[in-house]
Design a protein around this nucleic acid. Sequence first.
DNA 1: CCAATATAGTTGGTGGCACGTACTGAATCA
DNA 2: TGATTCAGTACGTGCCACCAACTATATTGG
Lengths: 163, 163
Amino acid sequence: MTSESQAWPTSGTPAPSFTPVDALTQLSFVVHGLLERRAGERDVSIVLTRLMGILRDRTPTMNQLAGLLDLDKSSVSGLVDRAVRRGLVERVPSPTDRRRVHVTLTPAGRRLAAEVTGRFGSDIDELLRGLSATDRKTLTRIATSILTRHASRRGLDLSESSL
Amino acid sequence: MTSESQAWPTSGTPAPSFTPVDALTQLSFVVHGLLERRAGERDVSIVLTRLMGILRDRTPTMNQLAGLLDLDKSSVSGLVDRAVRRGLVERVPSPTDRRRVHVTLTPAGRRLAAEVTGRFGSDIDELLRGLSATDRKTLTRIATSILTRHASRRGLDLSESSL
DNA sequence: CCAATATAGTTGGTGGCACGTACTGAATCA
DNA sequence: TGATTCAGTACGTGCCACCAACTATATTGG
């Protein structure tokens, strides 16, 4: 795939010239790496971080989590098991359907999520610091445009999905 | 972390308003998800895709791969073991130092890498299709700027590192 | 009313993949 | 030439993915 080795000449030129695909891909890897590092400091995986992000403002069922995380339901069982074991989430039986549980964030989980998110946010701010204010706004506008179009192609209401 | 649930009101507004952090994070997850999907079609993990990307134009040692992939050397041993087992890479003893091996891509590995990369590249082209030509160029310029500055902060020659 | 069917979630199996520690063989150093 | 360092592997552990099979519960249709 598009590692630097594809796009960048091995002559060590100071400013490589990326294709749009390479630029976006490399940038995504950097962002992902920053999240992995910050989350990893608290023994939190990216998928656990995403889980806690989802649980910040709702209490979905296991099935709903499987959809939101785009994972097999057995993977969600395992993920929630491990999070319960760490005291980060709880399973709450549904009052209306004894097959179902709703998953909620505990206070400890909420604090951990806020910490990881906060530090990661600072890292991204740092990453973007060299940009002019105009470029920051432009990047945000273009990224939002891509996301909105991508979501509508998938038939998603952006307020419901999680990555 | 910044799943949509953080940035997007649950009212289902058609065009959410992102902070720069959220926009960049969500976009990165989308890109990552596209790569996971395409690579997954050929039973290839992202880290294996990155490995093959590195090996496209060089034959690093295990230690160098550990640095390029930002992994523990024992993780690289396992990754290369599994890739060897699939006939995608080979370990070549160093002519000058019998402790070392150089890792090379096999023809089958090169073909697989090209296939995954090609399909993923098409997906990213599709993702960017709704942008104007000006916005594509602007996104590429801004992303390249971020990458260049980020790499120089880490003391990297961009032609040597891989994400 | 009840058997058949569908749903929600779990369990077990399997394999990939991460890190840490300990180890072996080879190269370098003093 | 022995001590030290380096390159890489092996092993243990735990996370995390998917698949198939299962149990308990809810719904459906006759």
